[in-house]
Write a protein that binds this DNA or RNA. Structure first.
Lengths: 195, 195, 195, 195
DNA sequence: AATGAATGAGCATTCATTCAT
DNA sequence: GATGAATGAATGCTCATTCAT
């Protein structure tokens, strides 16, 4: 990794939690220099503009979440166990190194949908990838006769994602972690009922 | 209604969709003057600062949503029908005069949770009120033996809200309204299964 | 006194201490409405603009000082005693109802000399009147052979005023009232040496 | 001297006379950009806010006065001659490069006493330093038997300062330079009488 | 005679970005 | 390749004043 690449990476790591907490519009270049100790010139030497940093920060934050989830999912053998890994992770949210500020897809989705097309696309892509990966697991479960053939994998995927993101929003907003747990129990029940 | 009250209301009505679309930080005073045709001085003559406009705009947006939902819910007789009213409304989202920019609770929750305590409180209060009103319906359903006594009304309420808000986010982000419909079908199934 | 005149007087009395404390530029119309409980319209109904209020407030503040000084001076019989009345008054500053904010001539002189011609003229007039009234006393003292005929009454008057105003500035600035007393002792010595 | 330091110094030099003439509240950032030809961003790149410029400008103005006085005082040998240097300087005010707007201590004292604590402290510190430096000269004069041991050096110092500042105010206000000369003659007499 | 609502210029400050060095 | 200095448009907000009612 070249010096330039290392600096780039350093900037991304230090600023990703800020973008995820304050949002794109709420994060200033001054926030970035404060967080990194670098100068404005250095930020602009490594990124063409604020957008590019925000996009890279989103990728970084997303990857953090994905790493956690993939790691827990691949430990599991059956489709049902893999789906339940989501329940396990989000019910024990604090035990995992989630990015500060909560779910980056959710945060970015809400801020960017009407105002920042590039970020919106990234978040939409992340949702689609997530959906596809759940569909894959559910389809495997159907094939291996774990789940009923009558179920609609896309609907299941979208529903699980909606419940998780809804739970994240409600919990972050109210500060009540047992709200998240209650919703995650509903996710668990939904998964149990797939058979 | 005094002139001042009328102007205040006019400002709120004209600017509420802007706050709901661009967010608090993304909405400038210039946006407010452009939307109303009034001058900065006039805005500040009727509100002490941007916060106060934003707070009033949130109330206005929230009320719009609540009016729609209450209207549809009170048309229904049974607890189940009342809950299904949510499914009906959100599945036919575009037929109702929802505020531009989507669900104000969701939008406000995500932006304000880490950055704007007064707005966060308002959004949290709205979620709690919503939850309580669903709990009330579910509890009535239990009492009137529509629903099984083993169900947990608060869990049901939180789950329905999470699914709706998750659906709103996903649909707004991806532009795919059938994603919302798929999730709303899951909500319908959840309600049907309460018996 | 008509209603209008009474309102005018009321505004002057309530706002004079504010102008004397915050200065002309530092005092806003909002300060005036806050201090009086009246509306902007009411202020502008009784005065054509802020200048006119400031000018009237200066007159009011000046008159307060003059009333104190004249009262103490006329109690005295000889020229020397009359001059010593200044020492007595300023050495016991807090016992007299001086306007809040200190000497209005000094305050106005410093702010207005380069920026507000109308106020500057008023302050300059006040200094000249003051000087003339001291000259008159000193001249009487010379005529009545209390003081040496070789003294220059104008020089004495200007020196006494300079010492008093200098003392006011130093004391207000440092908060040390014994600084004022030390200087007032020098004024006393100067008066004693006139013989 | 770095570029930043040079710009900083440039801003101070160009704006110090403006602060001394118009006062802190009366000087706008636009005044600073007009005087320097720089942009607002450039002013704020070199100073954190208007306060910091004002404080630096005060220091600059004060130093100008101090430089003049020290230069003339150190030319003199005896204590009496050193004190008379004040008379000489202020009687020939226009021959020296005093800051435009008059005495910065006086100007700042009057504006800041009730409204700007940081500036008030600076002005108060300047008065105290000035007083101490006169006390030192007077005390030397007593030690070297130029002056009577019965005199109070602090009282002398305060009196001289009060007379000078009073003279400055009166002269600036009325435009009559012979008023200053008359008062300076009184200062001279006071110094002659110290023996 | 007094009010309340509006004006629009002006305020201090921050913004993302550029560019000479 | 990195920095420090500068830009100028935009930020939220306050100002003295006007005027219809």
């Amino acid at each position: 990794m070249s010096k330039a690449e290392r600096t780039r990476q350093f900037i991304i790591e230090k600023t990703a939690p800020i973008f995820n907490t304050k949002g794109y519009a709420g994060t200033s270049i001054a926030d970035l220099t404060n967080a990194t100790g670098l100068t404005k010139g250095s930020i602009y030497g490594n990124f063409t503009n604020k957008d590019e940093v925000a996009l890279a920060a989103f990728d970084f934050n997303l990857q953090q979440v994905q790493t956690i989830l993939r790691s827990e999912i691949q430990k599991q053998a059956t489709a049902k166990e893999k789906l339940l890994a989501y329940v396990q992770v989000y019910s024990n949210f604090l035990k995992y190194p989630f990015p500060a500020g909560g779910c980056p897809i959710l945060n970015t989705a809400i801020e960017a949908d009407d105002t920042h097309e590039a970020l919106r696309k990234k978040a939409a892509g992340a949702i689609n990838d997530w959906k596809d990966s759940i569909i894959k697991v559910v389809s495997q479960g159907v094939e291996q006769q774990e789940f009923s053939p009558s179920i609609n994998p896309e609907q299941v995927a979208l529903t699980i994602i909606a419940m998780i993101e809804g739970a994240m929003m409600i919990t972050k907003l109210t500060g009540k972690t047992n709200f998240r747990n209650a919703i995650m129990q509903s996710v668990e029940k939904l998964i149990e009922d797939l058979k």
